[in-house]
C-alpha cells in the first residue's frame, strides 16, 4: 500500500497515462487473440435489420432529426417547444423583450443600491 500524493494536474496526467497503458495492453491482447476476417475479403456482412434483408431500408443512416426523440419530443417536449418556438423564433422584437428585461433588471439593481 502506498499513496501517491500528487497535485491534481500531475495526478490526472498520471491516470491518463495509466489509461493509455491499459488501453494499449488491451488492444494488443485483443489483436493477438481475436480472429479477424482478412482485409482483402470482398464479402461484407450486411446490417442486421431484425432478420429482414438489408434492402428493406433506404439507408442505414438515421436522420439526425430523429436522434434524441425521447428527450426532445418526449420528456422535454414543453421545454423544447418553449425554447425553440417561443424564445428562439428568429423575430427580432421578441428577443427585444428578453434583452430589455435584462437591462431593466440591471437598472433595478442599480436603483436599489442607490436607494439603500
Amino acid at each position: 500500500m502506498s499513496t501517491l500524493n500528487l497535485d491534481p494536474w500531475t495526478a490526472t496526467l498520471f491516470l491518463s497515462g495509466v489509461l493509455a497503458l491499459s488501453t494499449l495492453v488491451m488492444y494488443l491482447v485483443y489483436i493477438t487473440l481475436s480472429r479477424k476476417t482478412p482485409q482483402t475479403s470482398s464479402e461484407y456482412s450486411e446490417p442486421y435489420i431484425g432478420g429482414e434483408p438489408a434492402s428493406v431500408i433506404k439507408s442505414v443512416d438515421v436522420s439526425v432529426r430523429n436522434l434524441f426523440w425521447g428527450v426532445v419530443r418526449g420528456a422535454g417536449r414543453r421545454l423544447y417547444t418553449f425554447l425553440r418556438d417561443q424564445m428562439h423564433n428568429g423575430i427580432l422584437n421578441d428577443w427585444g423583450v428578453y434583452m430589455l428585461s435584462y437591462i431593466g433588471l440591471l437598472t433595478l439593481i442599480a436603483l436599489i443600491y442607490f436607494m439603500r
Binding site: N89, L92, N93
Partner: peptide
Amino acid sequence: DVRRVARLRG
C-alpha cells in the same frame, strides 16, 4: 418588417 425577416430560427 422584422416579423417576416425571420428565416433564421431555432
